[in-house]
């Protein structure tokens, strides 16, 4: 048997009452992948990310990281194992500065967060790493500003910065440019393009130009189930995919 994929799901199901938000999902994310997940609104994409990160528990089925079953592992533990995500709708520390937002994530990763007996600022390693991360995202100019004072597009970048502060092996991006005016969205997309290859990226997006340019593999979800998986070329060529989704998207 070859080495297991970085992240894998087996026969994953999740019901919300009568609604099957995830149905028999068998999914593989390889190390260093550039993978896109697309599908109409309500297809279950966010639910799938929630299942991968442990926010939502599957009704049945398993999630595996490097072959290890992590289905029962708590959300915070999965972060320690290298899975990070961004949220479709910003989940930021709104009354804290941009730097503090990133500091919290970095401090958590390096194990500084439980420390009580020295000032946060004395952990120069954490402060500096956070600052450098902001520089790479061209956010350092805003480092001292509160999130609530920032335009939405910049806030989306902070979402990304927090996730990167966790130095993940797997990065799950849930519509990273959602709600950002198209004139500004390229900043976020550039940042995503520049992500190091060591990070496996799964991106959800409705922007087909982005998806087809960025992704090396695409999974199409419809009504909670995987409808098709393949290279961008295969997906673009599949007539049924176009019928259920791409056609709609280009019309809409």
């Amino acid at each position: 048997m070859s080495t297991p994929p970085l992240l894998e799901t087996r026969a994953l199901y999740r019901n919300f009452g009568a609604l099957a938000a995830a149905r028999d999902i068998n999914f593989r994310l390889e190390a260093g992948a550039r993978h896109a997940l697309i599908g109409p609104n309500g297809a279950g994409k966010t639910t799938f990310v929630n299942l991968l990160t442990g926010v939502v528990r599957p009704t049945t089925g398993a999630v595996l990281l490097k072959g290890r079953d992590i289905t029962g592992v708590a959300q915070a533990e999965r972060v320690k194992l290298g899975i990070a995500r961004t949220f479709q709708i910003n989940r930021l520390f709104r009354r804290l500065s941009v730097l503090e937002n990133v500091y919290i994530a970095v401090a958590e990763r390096v194990g500084a967060a439980p420390s009580m007996f020295r000032p946060a600022g004395r952990r120069r390693d954490v402060v500096d790493e956070s600052m450098r991360l902001l520089e790479t995202l061209k956010l350092s100019g805003d480092a001292a500003r509160r999130i609530s004072e920032l335009p939405y597009g910049r806030q989306r970048l902070v979402e990304l910065a927090i996730a990167l502060g966790l130095k993940p092996e797997v990065l799950l991006l849930d519509e990273p440019a959602a709600g950002v005016p198209s004139a500004e969205s390229h900043i976020i997309l550039d940042a995503i393009d520049r992500l190091p290859r060591e990070i496996a990226v799964l991106i959800i997006d409705h922007d087909m130009d982005l998806v087809f340019r960025f992704a090396e593999r695409i999974t199409v979800m419809v009504s909670g189930a995987v409808f098709a998986t393949g290279s961008p070329r295969e997906i673009a060529a599949a007539a049924d995919v176009r019928a259920v989704y791409l056609g709609q998207a280009s019309r809409g």
């Binding site: 990160t53 926010v55 959300q75 915070a76 972060v79 990070a84 995500r85 949220f87 989940r91 930021l92 520390f93 709104r94 009354r95 804290l96 503090e100 500091y103 919290i104 401090a107 958590e108 500084a112 967060a113 439980p114 420390s115 009580m116 007996f117 020295r118 000032p119 946060a120 952990r123 954490v126 927090i162």
Partner: peptide, 19 residues
Amino acid sequence: SPFGQSLRGIRENMLRMHA
């Protein structure tokens, strides 16, 4: 302290702290 900073984080957004 960093602990206090993480408390602020919990106050501001508990879901993100889990994440």
